[in-house]
Amino acid sequence: MSKPKVCVLRTAGTNCDEETAFAFSKAGALAEPVHINKLIEQKKHLADYQILAIPGGFTYGDDIAAGKILANELRYKLIDQIKIFIQEGKLIIGICNGFQVLVKSGLLPGNSDLRQEASLIINDSAKFEDRWVYLKSTVKCIWTKNLSEIIYLPVAHGEGKFIAKDELVLQRLKDNGQIVFQYCDEKGGLTGYPENPNGSEDNIAGICDESGRILGLMPHPERHIEVSQHPRRWGVAKNKNEGDGLQLFKNGVEYIRKNF
């Protein structure tokens, strides 16, 4: 088949669209930044793509709460297109601000009536932080196959503390294996700040929906697709030939190749 097509959704304040598109093209896809107005006005159609990527940024300034306004825009203006997209078994990934959007729109952890069951709130440190973190992953999700046991990616956010609505939701996430990324130390231990940079419950850094096709995560895989981006490439990363994050994009592209 031809290259899988990725819609990299952008709007006012999106700012990781170009590097996200670059990561997808490096993984073999045809990635195109698309302004949300074009989808709303039907000048472009979500149906023409197989992957929807909601990249990082500060959509609408993160005013009110991070990702909230774009989340509502999806719910009120694009939801029919998105529902069809999901029903057709296509893929969605939300990174950083994109994760906040997916959670606040109710697309993650996901339920039939799009109730918001979790949130990403202000970091315990009460400030934006850019730092590299270790992540433990599980393979429940199609996006996280073939990753090393522990991967290394940067986070850069002020509102990334994951909380579930209640114990039941958290238990359901655990039981279903929807917690796909957890902040950890170099050896995989679930430790506190700064390894867990924001105070997330259960060190949660990323979750997927029940199907494993919709993924949201706070860390930035698109900022570690090459070894040159690693902060200590002179030592630990010397013998690698690609960054830890690239595999996620490859997984998405590979899945579409196989299934569409």
Binding site: C16, E18, F22, E129, D130, R223, Q229, P231, G235
Partner: peptide, 20 residues
Amino acid sequence: IRQYDHEVQGGSVLKPLVGI
């Protein structure tokens, strides 16, 4: 330095904070 995003746009090669 940590409060600034010094890696957005993906082109960061040598960062303002380095070391073990």
